[in-house]
Design a protein around this nucleic acid. Structure first.
Lengths: 365, 365
DNA sequence: CGGCGTTGTTAATGCGTATTAACTAATGCG
DNA sequence: CGCATTAGTTAATACGCATTAACAACGCCG
């Protein structure tokens, strides 16, 4: 009787030479597929079956000559790891506008990932159109990797939460404490800002004003907290007027306002760094318009790095956000999670940056 | 007789509630796993089996209530594709120095990859240690993707050849005709340069000199060819002195040389763009040192974009290399190769950039 | 009423790798 | 020399989904 044809998927046409599989390596080496797997992915603790040196050599040689590379999907499906770390950003990772890009983070991310033996998969997140578009599937693609790094301000909470709940290793770059259970790394703005304030106090400044935008992002509130802690540490008073909060500093921060502060004895200003740099720009132009000299009349500090278009100006006193280090720290944390270890310290310190925009206050009569 | 225990992988402990599978959706909906698959991933052309509206509704409802999300690894394994495109560069993909990086290319690469539904795997040739380490295996790792994009000047020929011979889809960013069979996309320097020359001729220039470096990279020879073609098209003579080739233009391009040219009736110069911008720098400084005014005495054009540190200068006449578009074109070509289609037009046009450094020649007595 | 399409659903695969019980060959021991 | 032990390898799974031949339940027509 003719063997009945069984249903199922027809084998691939194999018209083109496809990538070699373990089966082909096995054939070439004269062993079984299982042996190939055992040779190519040895258990780290040497627990599994032992393969003779001779066989191992033959298999490795065969794999090399065929250019064998394991299929990441198959590896993952088989409940192992594939040495891939995902990077997902909700805006384009490589935007046309370099200013607002995550490029500096990626520098560190890539370096650290390579050092730890991972390759990076860039999940093309919210770029225009195509499969990368939004929808519940967009985030689920990251499960192809062993774990995923998320960068960006606007994180879709439910999907991320879902990933975390399923035990998928996730690290967010930037403080994200409101999302229960999401690991994150961030810059220690509190400490860095406090440091700046204390140094200003040490120069002799008694009255310092923080200029910030009207935004409750963690990065902003952290700076304010650090500012207030710094004042306290220096024994300076922190009245309601020490923080100037404005949705549009470039308009509302008038020269008159500035002169009034100066008359009240304010001798130093610190501005937060934001995407737009509005706080810093507003402060700079107001100082100029008021005819004040820096650092003779007032000292200015920037809590971050200046916008790129102000690169020709002298670099102000403040601190640098170690973005590459942040990226590297995030990768280390992610790798630890992937390995099933515990999370480590999430805060990365910023480094104080001396600059010509600060000095001792003018002696007042 | 006791059924003999068969070997094989023990099922996962399933200690934590794992994500629902199609099987669970099927159970809840009272259908088979196959039906779930058919409902959840319908063939776009409606070719496959038809599912009744009633069943479809039940399945969708069950999937929704369970929060079912397909496992990308399994999906990709079954589809025999993983929708990953590799990006390989022989210098670090993310160099700290943004200026000389491949960033502008990546802008286009990322956008186009997203539009086509691919994710990117980033490989770096120069990363220390780890997966990206050098050696013959380094290139082999790229096979993990469906195809790979190569960026960089120094491509290891044998390994690349090997990949191509194995039918692995490969695209090189930048002309690379000497490597048999390697697909590539590049900028059409010939056409763009000819255009610049013709426009200079239309302004009235009769004698034009090309300043280039002593390098036989395709990018250089293409510009020279376009230059000569432009002269011919404009009916201008092309003697041996129309091309000034120098290994160190900043030293060898003296003011005296420049004045000599001017005396001979040369009224316009074009310089090639290189990494260092040496040709352009040399030309600029020589013109200044010679006391010549631009564009009054001489017209200057740059065959590319000026170095970043000259950004404050007026942007010279010339053309822009559409790097993002180049990246996008490379991805499109690669995607076509992956899909088994034929290669398309590899040249991407450059756009003429008007500028203040050219004008009609001074009327000569 | 028997054969024949239609329509809807399922059983039975395959994808490539990891895992492990079981088997074989070689060695040691009494 | 017989049996237990060990080293080395393999067969037979599982992983979750997509695919497709086969099957079932219908009318419909002659």
């Amino acid at each position: 009787m003719e063997p009945r044809k069984r249903p199922g998927r027809t084998p691939a046409p194999a018209g083109r030479t496809s990538r070699p599989r373990q089966a082909e390596v096995a054939r070439l080496a004269g062993v079984s597929q299982a042996t190939v797997s055992l040779v190519l992915s040895p258990k780290p603790d040497g627990k599994g079956p032992v393969i003779s040196e001779e066989t191992r050599r033959r298999v490795l040689e065969a794999a090399r000559s065929l250019g064998y590379v394991p299929d990441p999907a198959a590896r993952r499906l088989a409940a192992a790891r594939n040495n891939l770390l995902g990077v997902f950003s909700f805006t384009a990772t490589f935007p046309t506008d370099v200013q607002h890009s995550y490029y500096p983070f990626l520098v560190g991310v890539e370096r650290e990932a390579a050092a730890l033996g991972y390759d990076l998969v860039l999940f093309t997140g919210s770029s225009t159109g195509g499969a990368g578009a939004a929808g519940p599937d967009a985030l689920s693609r990251v499960r192809l990797a062993d774990g995923c790094l998320f960068i960006g301000r606007h994180t879709p909470r439910p999907e991320l939460k879902r990933l975390v709940e399923d035990g998928f290793p996730v690290v967010h770059l930037g403080r994200r404490e409101e999302l229960e259970g999401v690991a994150w790394v961030g810059a220690d703005y509190v400490e860095a800002t406090r440091d700046v304030v204390v140094r200003l106090a040490e120069l002799g400044h008694r009255r310092i004003v923080l200029v910030r935008e009207d935004d409750d992002a963690p990065a902003s509130t952290d700076r304010q907290r650090g500012f207030l802690e710094g004042l306290e540490e220096a024994g300076l008073p922190s009245g309601p007027t020490t923080v100037f909060r404005s949705a549009d500093p470039q308009r509302e921060l008038t020269p008159e306002r500035l002169r009034a502060w100066a008359d009240e004895g304010v001798t130093a200003f610190v501005a937060e760094e934001t995407d737009t740099g509005a706080a810093w720009r507003g402060l700079l132009s107001a100082v100029r318009a008021a005819g004040l000299d820096c650092p003779e009349d007032v000292s200015l500090a920037l809590l971050g790095s200046p916008p790129a278009d102000l690169a020709s100006e002298p670099v102000p006193t403040g601190f640098d956000i170690p973005r590459p280090q942040l990226g590297a720290a995030a990768v280390r944390l992610l790798a630890a999670l992937v390995a099933g270890e515990e999370a480590s310290e999430p805060l990365v310190g910023c480094v104080f940056r001396p600059g010509p925009t600060t000095g001792p206050p003018r002696a007042r009569p």
